[in-house]
Design a protein around this nucleic acid. Sequence first.
DNA 1: CTCCTTAATAGTCACATTGACTATAAAGGC
DNA 2: GCCTTTATAGTCAATGTGACTATTAAGGAG
Lengths: 256, 256
Amino acid sequence: MTSPQPPRRPSGQPRVPENYDPADFVPFAVTVDLAVFTVRESRLHVLLVERGEEPYLGHWALPGGFVRPRESAGQAARRELAEETGLSPDTVAGLRPEQLRTYSDPDRDPRMRVVSVAYTALVPDLPEPRGGGDAAQARWTPYDELGRLAFDHGRILADGRRRIGAKLEYTCLATAFCPPEFTLGELQQVYETVWGVVLDRPNFRRKVLTSPGFVEPVEGPPRRTGGRGKPAALYRAGAATALHPPLLRPEGRTTP
Amino acid sequence: MTSPQPPRRPSGQPRVPENYDPADFVPFAVTVDLAVFTVRESRLHVLLVERGEEPYLGHWALPGGFVRPRESAGQAARRELAEETGLSPDTVAGLRPEQLRTYSDPDRDPRMRVVSVAYTALVPDLPEPRGGGDAAQARWTPYDELGRLAFDHGRILADGRRRIGAKLEYTCLATAFCPPEFTLGELQQVYETVWGVVLDRPNFRRKVLTSPGFVEPVEGPPRRTGGRGKPAALYRAGAATALHPPLLRPEGRTTP
DNA sequence: CTCCTTAATAGTCACATTGACTATAAAGGC
DNA sequence: GCCTTTATAGTCAATGTGACTATTAAGGAG
């Protein structure tokens, strides 16, 4: 059952299950960590902040921080995202960080027992973070140029990447990586970048356009230049959230 | 970043982010809750325990309990599953509770701040729990006969059900509901029960048998009686873990 | 022992989706 | 104008799936 008689105060004497030694009890700290992804120049990037204190001083880490006494982990995730990344309030307001999983290894933080609830968020390319809150600086880093990160953040990012790769298959999530109006070529870039594959353009196009509610055409000026070549039509995200049938990645290989 | 200067002891004065009032700080308790599902008599059942204390005294709740100082949430989940359900050690040893998500609403426990990491587990029908640990009693309850559960456990079960329904589509997880050797009819029962639909038998059969590694035939006595009718061949779970292409539920409706 | 019921297994056929291609259209740079 | 580049249109075969029909192998009733 949940929480049988937790200590009311650190000095209280809780009723505990057998084999449980009250002397071992220490409070847990609960934090959130954010795995924020974007696609930039056809490469997957993640948002990192530089740690300003020990342990891992000077190392790169995921943005995040404590969950406060009166907020949920989800609220903390949105707050930290705004505080630490320096993204515009408008940008942050549109994001829906999604819970990834919780990391609770007893030794994941050398100082004390910290349980962290990790979230993923997908953003379009535009914003360049500057760092805020207590993060020394924040920046986008290509996913495949990551060095060793603080704590278990490397593992969190690997889990996050696998998750978003899978979600691209059966949800309309890919549009979250794109600006409000985008071309099908840009959308395809998202898939190719996250999955690390090359897709056939006409087939991709057909699949997206025949999936009801995935994208809807933008009426106005039906074109826009990306440089040379024929101008592409613009689309925006549709109302659908799931993709039926799914858009499976080639070969069924789950990129590890 | 993760855990910038947490309080070392309840009286310590931590460095905190702006807008953060140290006086508000209270330690979090961290628990695990288990959503254990089985299929019994063509109905989805969940494992519940009766609470022996306030709050929610006498209400039914999910098995679970505190995460101990030196164990991870996953270890706690396995331990509680063994302690509180009274399932045989052999049965429990084969289970791989999978993390569902973390529930952290500030008011989910009226006594104090409790963050709970929820897990799902799927078991074959056989075992009848007796309750152990500090659970007054434990029993299987049909999913659609649930009353109001303690805390937010009703919501956890709803999330867990949705998750396993989705995982049946693209993983080989369904075999976890079956005994070591099973017929294709039993496997189909699992899908029909969890999804709440009726499937075409020949088509289901074809799909399962052509999915490499989903099931493998048992050599020995190639039959077994379930009552009347032609005896069915026996199979056991194969080595595959993912299903490519997936076995999509009819109509693409995500049972809410 | 024969017929009837029940359930498993085998097989068929049309249709939808997909992967691999080919062809055409509309821009910019010389 | 011609070449390059990119978007868009369309074709065709292989595959997977939904809806069926047929056959096989039990147990039970008479």
